[in-house]
Every structure is written in C-alpha cells, then in structure tokens.
Design a protein around this nucleic acid. Structure first.
Length: 247
DNA sequence: TTCCAGGCAATAC
DNA sequence: GTATTGCATGGA
C-alpha cells in the first residue's frame, strides 16, 4: 500500500512517484487513446468524441505518409487556443479545396483563410501555415526543436506536438489541460515555466514517444471530463489517489 | 449572455 | 524584464 501525502508532494522524488501513479491510473481509466486524430486513417475508431474519423488506439504506426505528417502539423497550428471540432471543420475544408498540401499552402492565401475560418484567428493562422509550409518544403529529415521555435507562429507546445505526433520524437507536450490538472493536484505552481512542467512529466514516464503520446492524450481526455468547467477538478477521481491510501 | 477552447506574438508598463 | 492585450469562430 502506498500512501501519498502532502509531504511527498513537496519533494521532487515524491512528485515523480505521483506522476508515475497518475499515468497508471489514467491508462486504467480510459485505455489507450491513440492520438493524433487523422482525416485519413484506415481502421480508425469512428465513435471517438471530437474526431472526424476517430483515433487509432493502440496503433502507433501513424503517420504513415508524408501527407498525414503534414496534416498533423497543420492541425497542431490550427488548434492553438481552439477546440478540436472547429479545427476539424477547417481541415475538412482544406482537404476539400486540395489545400492540405505544402506546395499549395505556399501559393494561395485568400482560399486558405476562407477554408480555415471555423478554426478562428484565420488571418494569423493563414500566415502561420504559410511560414510553416515554407519551412516544410526545405526540410530534410526530422526538424530540430529550436528550428521550429524560430518560426513565426510556432511556440513550445506546437513545436512539441509536431515533434511528438508528426515525427514520433520523445517530446512531452504540455498544454492548458495538463497544467490545469497538475495545478489542481498541487503538483506544480502557477508560475512554473513550460519547461519546468515538461521536466516533471518526463521524469515520471518512460523515455519513449508512444508513452509520451499516450499520456498527453490521456491528460486531455481526463481534462475534458473534469476540468472544462469551473470549479476545475470538481469530482476529479485523481484527487482521491493523491490524498488517500490505495484500496 | 458569458465563458471557454489541445497558444502565440505584439505591445504596455 | 513581466503583465496585458489582440487575434476570431463556434459550442456549451
């Protein structure tokens, strides 16, 4: 029996153990999530909430084509401060117009804005997509994180999403939901930086892209259930895990 | 109606 | 340097 109390939360070693336990519990609760969602993905689970054609739980073979890789990058940019269903509408529109390709992104502008309108911030995001696609067409092999970060419109979360899901590199993605959960569980402080939180999460997970993908997706799934409305974390079952002994 | 969404860059202080 | 503001649509 492991009792995780407040004292443990104040030490780094205690936190690592807690993170590890959180992951275990989330996986038990929701099972493998199989991110990232793709428009074209054979055998995807079509019933998954918020997904056009569903996720691919337990299948870590995606992306399988350059087009899918590019689609993930576009999705990562479009989903900045935007709900996924809105992003899906935009992705559908882009695909329908034949715009979900790097070369065409470089050329056309008005059509891109029109297509991505549902995802919001369409003027900014059009520019971001053009900047990124220029980068993409000159890209050889996997991108470097610092190169992505140097692009206008790509911050730490978007860079890590691209590296983790499009290129299957072990970079943990820290998003609003993840922060919200960890903050609520008193495992981080409000002023902790992106990298602080990332380090903590990495310390509690196997250094493997599949693990990072799964855990990030699990945080989002959990947050959608318990951390979307205030008060955040109401009825969150993970709290029991941290304050009480295991049964 | 108000709040929030899988952020980021620009501007204000 | 840190804090605040602009970007924008759509669903709950």
């Amino acid at each position: 029996m492991v009792l995780i109390g407040k004292a443990d939360r104040n030490s780094q070693i205690g936190k690592v153990g807690i993170i590890d336990r959180l992951f275990e519990e989330l996986l038990r609760m929701y099972g493998p999530q199989g991110w990232w969602p793709l428009l074209t993905c054979k055998g995807c689970n079509p019933t998954k909430t918020g997904s056009s054609q569903g996720y691919h739980p337990g299948d870590y073979s995606y992306p399988q084509t350059d087009n899918q890789r590019f689609e993930i990058c576009v999705g990562a940019i479009l989903t900045q401060n935007t709900s996924w269903p809105n992003v899906e509408k935009a992705l559908f529109n882009l695909a329908r117009e034949g715009l979900l390709e790097p070369m065409i992104m470089v050329a056309d502008e008005g059509k891109i804005s029109q297509a991505i309108k549902p995802a919001g911030y369409f003027n900014q995001k059009t520019r971001k997509l053009k900047v990124f696609s220029s980068f993409w067409v000159n890209l050889k092999g996997n991108p470097k994180r610092e190169d992505l970060l140097s692009l206008w419109g790509i911050g730490p979360e978007t860079a890590d999403s691209i590296l983790l899901y499009a290129f299957r590199m072990p970079e943990f993605v820290v998003d609003t939901y993840t922060r919200r959960i960890l903050l609520n569980l008193c495992l981080i402080e409000d002023e902790d930086s992106y990298d602080d939180v990332k380090r903590l999460l990495i310390s509690g997970a196997r250094n493997d892209f599949r693990t990072y993908q799964e855990y990030h997706a699990l945080f989002v799934e959990h947050a959608k259930r318990y951390y979307q409305k205030k008060p955040y974390g109401k009825d969150c079952p993970l709290k029991k895990l941290l304050s009480a002994p295991e049964i």
